[in-house]
């Protein structure tokens, strides 16, 4: 096992090990874009590790230098001279080849909301506004129940009966419907943000959120202002999430 003391071997083992863990150890699989970022950090860290002192650096570089110049390593050089271009060529091919799948795209999941919107010819403030139904404490449960009914009638088919984005139609949609159980979705947003998203749907998204590819309808055509607030109440109640509060001025 003395070869494990070589910094070069250690570096290769760490790199391969890190890739295996990131590629196969994370379930469900991590997106390729994230693995690339992580592997870039690992490569940087490994280079720092092997070069953080002179002895270590020498131990890392010596086998590379020997492979490049040592007359006895000529067969290894020949194999590498063939293998490396093939690997790089294969990588280039995988990057350039067109597949049946749409390419990955960068999409702002939570775009910035406007300060106000026009809702059926009425201006509704989005900035600094809380759900008005919460003020009616005596009837909150009634509003939640009404919101649940609205959800089942209109939203469940895509967002799922568990509010996890796994509705009947979800498999056909790209981007997939939002998973409200995820702490990275509605828990990070104020209720008025949800009002805006429900009212204006996909067509009302700003460009960075690719409005052309969202299947979310603009519910202002079908639901009243109160109904949208009711379903918003229901979403938080059913998932156990708390809506984000507005920060106060200093």
């Amino acid at each position: 096992m003395s070869f494990l003391r070589s910094r070069f071997v250690q570096a290769v083992v760490i790199l391969v090990g890190a890739f295996v863990v990131l590629r196969f150890g994370i379930r469900p699989p991590a997106p390729w874009s994230v693995i690339q970022i992580y592997m870039a950090v690992v490569v940087l860290a490994v280079l720092i590790y092997v070069s953080s002192d002179t002895d270590s650096w020498r131990s890392f570089v010596d086998p590379i230098r020997a492979t490049l110049v040592d007359p006895g390593r000529r067969p290894v050089r020949l194999v590498l001279a063939v293998l490396l271009p093939i690997l790089l060529g294969y990588y280039a091919y995988t990057q350039a080849a067109a597949g049946p799948e749409a390419p990955a795209e960068l999409r702002a999941v939570h775009p910035a909301p406007p300060s106000s919107i026009q809702f059926r010819s009425k201006e509704i403030n989005i900035s600094g506004v809380d759900n008005p139904l919460r003020k009616d404490a005596a009837n909150v449960k009634k509003h939640v129940a009404a919101g649940g009914e609205i959800y089942v009638r209109n939203c469940m088919y895509c967002h799922g009966d568990n509010l996890d984005g796994h509705g009947r139609f979800a498999a056909a949609l790209n981007p997939p419907p939002a998973n409200f159980e995820d702490p990275g979705t509605i828990a990070m947003l104020q209720e008025s943000y949800l009002f805006w998203r429900i009212a204006k749907g996909g067509p009302g998204l700003p460009r960075e959120s690719t409005p052309w590819s969202s299947a979310m309808p603009a519910w202002e055509d079908r639901l009243t202002e109160e109904q949208i607030w009711q379903v918003t109440l229901y979403l938080y109640d059913a998932t156990g999430q708390e809506p984000r509060r507005w920060e106060t001025a200093h």
Partner: peptide, 13 residues
């Protein structure tokens, strides 16, 4: 990609 998003169960991992 769409395939990755489906495997993740949404746009959030």
């Amino acid at each position: 990609t769409l395939e990755e998003a489906r495997a993740m169960g949404g746009t959030h991992h």
